[in-house]
Each structure stands twice: as structure tokens, then as C-alpha cells.
Write a protein that binds this DNA or RNA. Structure first.
Length: 282
DNA sequence: ATGTCAACTTAGAGTTGA
């Protein structure tokens, strides 16, 4: 297959980020790019603009929230939107019960599957782009959903690894794997992204046969991929590593370079996440 | 703890989510 550049980037709206996305595609030249938080429905993705740069596109979106996509110039086959076993989101308990209007005991909303995963085969590698639920607070139903969602992902990935040794799962996991992956562990006391159950869910995913490909920072010692827009967090390098690149052993052993492109977080109209770039030679 | 951003409802500022 030769040398291939894979990347993952939470763009925080592909519409708002389109100029930056096109600029970055030309600059970095990834062969495969996993996108998250595209925030567009099925027909809202700027497919033509991206295709003009030589990329095939597979998008999975629902409108205002979430949304994932795969861009590839080395093949894009066997696209799967979502995955078997996704538990879906039913809302907080308080939202789940509707007022009885015609004598019924109350209606419960069934879980709605969100656009958080898409997978395809690109250049001989099975590639997953995932956007893990945020979790909001450890007390919320959204946090429970996050843990269930990660367990369902683990189960499905384990199934795929039985059929291929070339697989990557990358995207915005909304979990910092270790305390070294946040700027100040004390600042995250009581918050999501750092709790033991979330980290155990990542460990269980890795235990299916994946390895964490930790990218090199472009500047400073910390491999952060996300910095809050507020309070000058980026300029103080108060970030987190929550955008992860999990690779099967065969792919991980083929990694030649991996870095975080912090240049893409600078300047006018950036996403709050930076792209993670991984070069492999299979 | 929250100083920004994006989309949406709806016609300007408030809500939601991150």
C-alpha cells in the first residue's frame, strides 16, 4: 500500500469551518480524514468543494448536532453509517415523560440514534470516525449514555477485529486517557472526561487489540488536541488530549510519524480542536 | 469556573450544547 497519511479533526461545524478545512486539506494533504461535529444533515455537507480537491466523501449527519464524515483519496468502500448496538439517546429522565393528554399513564420517548459513527475501508484499512457523547456531568443521564455508547462501540470493534488486522478507530472521544492528558488534573475534579469509569471504558476498548497512537505536540510538552475557546485557554496551553487515534497492532507498528497540527487552532475562525495526523507505511 | 462559538428560533436576543 505504501505510505498513507491519516488524520482526525473535530471541526465544530463543517459549514463554519469550510474555508479552514479546504485550506488545511491542501496544506496537510491527508489521504484519509475523519471529521466530527460536522453539524449538517445528509444533504448539507459541502461534498463538491471537497471533491474538487480529489476526495471521495461519506457523510453521516442529522442537522444541528453531532455529525461525522470520512474523506478519502485512497478509496472509500463498504461505508457503514452508525453501528449495530448503538444504544441511542432518550433524553434526561425529566424530559422523557410527557404530560398525559388523553388518559394515558405517560409516554416514554424511545432512544434516538445520533450521528456519531461512520466507518469505511480506505486503502486497505478499516477506518472509523467517532464522536463520543460528551457526558455533560457525572450525575447526568448523558454520562450513563456515554458509558453505554463506549461499551457498545467496544463490542462492535471487537467483532470487526475478528475479521481484519488493519483497523483504526479515531475521533473525539471526550475522554482524557490519563492525568497527563489535561493541563491541570485538579481543575477537573468532579468533571466528566477524567473519571475512572470513562477511562476504564477506553481501556476496555484498547483491550480488544488496539493501541493508543500518541501524537507529538508541535510546541511545548503537552500533546493536547482541544482548548476551550474561552478565557485564552489556547494561548496559555490549557488544553486536553481527547481526540484519539486507536490503531490495531499491524497499523500501530506501521506508524512512521504522528503529530498534532496546532497551527490549525490558530488565527481567524478556528475549530476548538486541532487535527491529529498519523503517517503509516503498510 | 466559564471570559467563546455555532445553530436555531425568530426578526434581536435568548436557548442549547459544547
Amino acid at each position: 500500500m505504501g505510505r498513507v497519511r491519516l488524520a482526525t479533526w473535530n471541526v465544530n461545524s463543517v459549514k463554519a469551518r469550510l474555508p479552514r478545512l479546504l485550506e488545511w486539506l491542501e496544506l496537510a494533504g491527508p489521504d484519509v480524514l475523519c471529521l466530527q461535529e460536522t453539524k449538517v444533515g445528509a444533504d448539507g455537507f459541502p461534498t463538491e468543494e471537497v471533491a474538487a480537491l480529489g476526495y471521495a466523501v461519506a457523510a453521516h449527519g442529522e442537522g444541528r448536532w453531532n455529525g461525522v464524515a470520512l474523506l478519502s483519496r485512497v478509496g472509500l468502500d463498504d461505508v457503514v453509517r452508525g453501528f449495530e448496538g448503538d444504544p441511542g439517546w432518550a433524553g434526561e429522565p425529566a424530559e422523557r415523560v410527557r404530560e398525559p393528554d388523553d388518559g394515558e399513564e405517560g409516554l416514554f420517548e424511545t432512544p434516538r440514534i445520533e450521528a456519531r459513527a461512520i466507518s469505511a475501508t480506505c486503502g486497505g484499512v478499516r477506518v472509523w470516525s467517532v464522536y463520543v457523547p460528551n457526558g455533560r456531568t457525572p450525575e447526568s443521564a448523558h454520562y450513563t449514555y456515554k458509558l453505554h455508547w463506549l461499551e457498545a462501540l467496544r463490542s462492535r470493534v471487537a467483532g470487526e477485529l475478528a475479521g481484519t488486522d488493519r483497523l483504526v478507530v479515531c475521533g473525539d472521544f471526550n475522554v482524557a486517557p490519563t492525568d497527563a492528558d489535561v493541563f491541570n488534573p485538579a481543575a477537573f475534579a468532579g468533571s466528566t472526561h477524567v473519571t475512572a469509569p470513562e477511562r476504564e471504558a477506553l481501556a476496555a476498548l484498547l483491550a480488544t487489540g488496539l493501541r493508543d497512537v500518541v501524537p507529538a505536540p508541535m510546541k511545548g510538552p503537552n500533546p493536547f488536541t482541544y482548548w476551550d475557546y474561552r478565557a485564552g485557554m489556547f494561548h496559555q496551553d490549557k488544553g486536553m488530549r481527547i481526540d484519539l487515534f486507536y490503531a490495531s497492532a499491524a497499523v500501530a507498528e506501521a506508524v512512521k510519524a504522528a503529530y498534532i497540527d496546532r497551527e490549525a487552532r490558530k488565527g481567524k475562525g478556528p475549530s476548538d480542536h486541532a487535527p491529529v495526523v498519523v503517517d503509516i507505511d503498510l
